[in-house]
Design a protein around this nucleic acid. Structure first.
Length: 487
RNA sequence: GAGGGCGUAGCUCAGUCGGCAGAGCACCUGCCUUUUAAGCAGGUGGUCCUGGGUUCGAGUCCCAGCGCCCUCACCA
């Protein structure tokens, strides 16, 4: 670092600003490459009339005496600069001598190809735009220490092109989904992140406080209750790309703050929401290119619609041989798997509620809770190809409309891919008197009393979708600044 | 919250049985007008994650702590 500060001072002493300002009309390296490709420049030739201006960070520097080659990287790729002491003049050559890997420079010159055919910008003028005081990571391995990659993501980004590519793809996916929904007549909205009453999911919130109002507030765990108010207000198709905050554990699939796209469509139901899920994912895939069949780790996933649709009860039977309504059979299996023992141990902690009316004789745990645990343990890991699991046990889905012919079934689906939950949807409950029993938010109930159109609602985890489409193992690889403990 | 793994130069990593702290890249000095992980010669660079302990002597062994990764739990 001391050496670099000396060079910075040397530049200043020579009247060169080491932190240059505006540098207009820079061409992207990829655009220049395309422009050059149509010219058929022979190896070893320079075209005196083909001028260009490029800017970026120095990633390679080879000084071979009175001639030097630099590789400069911009957002679109790399471009080689050629510097000749004879052409540049002593003053500019002296400037070059103060450069290091990692510095950001601009170059004006003419295009040519070297003996080996590499496209090269032969500089007439060199402009220092930012002197880097810290060296970049090693050129061959880049930055691989995951802790440093997350803590200093800027280094990760400029030294690892594949990381930049993942986040470019993330942007493309979200942009495509947004356009897809807008094309369907959806309005994009923003609802409160700071909520006096939290709801819409079962998770512990982060709490905060507004000083002037002297009011406790929660960071939202879901935008759901606000988006439904908008349905009442006549906004019949709305979506929000919502950062949600859940004060829960961290894992390769969970970050405390994460992005979800949530949408509501009046007069639709959960079947329509299955199509919306397929449509959004297809739009994301189309933006990336490469087709519906995509690698994910050792797996090969086929996102081509329509995805498999399977009833919760049928899948349970398929993978466990159990009948959902067989309370004693489920209890026995739950004991075999150790689930029952685990749950009864947790009753004291208040995490598990005892509901004898829904339990098998002699069981302390609600039947549907046992079923759900069995499902998570024995069925979910097998849901590799995109699958809509629908018609859930009603007791584990309070905000969902019941099946008209079977009140024990909720009109809900979850989308699973690679054994991971990707989305969750309902045919929404719009009866205020039923809702009232289950929600603390009086204003929300009042909204329903004014009449909410029947609707389908859907939430898709955007980080997880980006993981699946970019073949990323960890949610931290698709979130720019994942939460880290204070280092 | 529980278990396992990891932590050494700016970066990527070796470090044997407890016996002088190492390599490559980067950096510095010199040479080189077509390099491609450029090359050649010489050189600088260390809180071995932190704090204790054992020992004549600790990067190495023991204890505690911190951080990261993984698994489980919690949670969608």
């Amino acid at each position: 670092m001391q050496e670099r500060e000396k060079k910075r001072d040397a530049l200043r002493a020579a009247g060169v600003d080491p932190y240059g300002g505006r540098f207009p009309d820079v061409e992207a390296a990829a655009d220049l490459r395309a422009r050059a490709d149509v010219c058929d420049i022979p190896a070893g030739e320079k075209l005196p009339d083909f001028t260009a201006r490029i800017a970026g960070r120095i990633t390679l520097l080879r000084d071979i005496g009175k001639l030097a080659f630099l590789t400069v990287q911009d957002r679109t790729g790399a471009m080689q600069f050629g510097l000749s002491r004879a052409d540049l003049g002593d003053a500019q050559w002296a400037v070059f001598k103060q450069l290091d890997l990692g510095d950001i420079i601009g170059g004006d010159g003419i295009i040519g190809r070297t003996k080996t055919g590499e496209l090269t910008l032969w500089l007439k003028t060199l402009t220092v735009l930012a002197k880097a005081l810290r060296p970049p990571p090693e050129k061959w391995h880049g930055l691989t220490d995951v802790e440093l990659r997350y803590r200093h993501r800027y280094v990760d980004l400029f030294s690892n092109p594949e990381v930049r590519e993942v986040f470019r793809q993330r942007s493309a996916i979200i942009h495509a989904i947004r356009e897809h929904l807008v094309d369907l007549g959806y309005l994009e909205v923003d609802t409160p992140v700071l909520q006096p009453i939290y709801g819409g999911a079962a998770a512990r919130p982060f709490t905060t406080h507004h000083n002037t109002l002297d009011m406790d507030l929660y960071l939202r765990i879901s935008p759901e209750l606000y988006l439904k108010r908008l349905l009442v207000g006549g906004m019949e198709r709305v979506f929000e790309i919502s950062r949600n905050f859940r004060n829960e554990g961290i894992s390769p699939r969970h970050n405390p703050e994460f992005s979800m796209i949530e949408l509501y469509e009046a007069y639709a139901d959960y079947n329509v929401m299955m199509e919306r899920t397929e449509g959004m994912v297809a739009a994301g895939i189309e933006a990336l290119g490469g087709g519906f069949i995509r690698p994910y780790g050792e797996l090969e996933l086929n996102f081509a619609p329509p995805w498999r649709r399977a009833k919760y009860a049928d899948l349970l039977g398929e993978h466990t041989g159990l009948d959902v309504k067989d309370t004693s059979g489920v209890l026995e299996r739950a004991k075999q798997e150790g689930i029952y023992q685990k749950l009864t141990k947790m009753i004291g902690d208040g995490h598990v509620h005892v509901r004898p009316d829904h339990a098998a004789p002699g069981s302390l745990i609600d039947h549907d809770v046992l079923v759900n645990e069995l499902f998570d343990m024995l069925v979910q890991p097998h849901l590799i190809q995109p699958t809509f699991v629908y018609d859930y046990p009603a007791s584990i889905c309070p905000l969902t409309r019941r099946h008209p012919e079977d009140p024990s079934i909720a009109l809900r689906f979850e989308a699973f891919v690679a054994g991971m939950e990707l989305g969750n949807a309902y045919t929404e409950l719009n009866d205020p008197r039923v809702q009232e029993e289950k929600v603390m938010d009086e204003d929300f109930v009042m909204a329903l009393e004014y009449g909410m159109p029947p609707a389908g609602g859907l939430g898709v985890g955007l980080d997880r979708l980006v993981m699946l489409l970019t073949n990323s193992r960890s949610i931290r690889d698709v979130i720019l600044f994942p939460l880290q403990r204070k280092g």
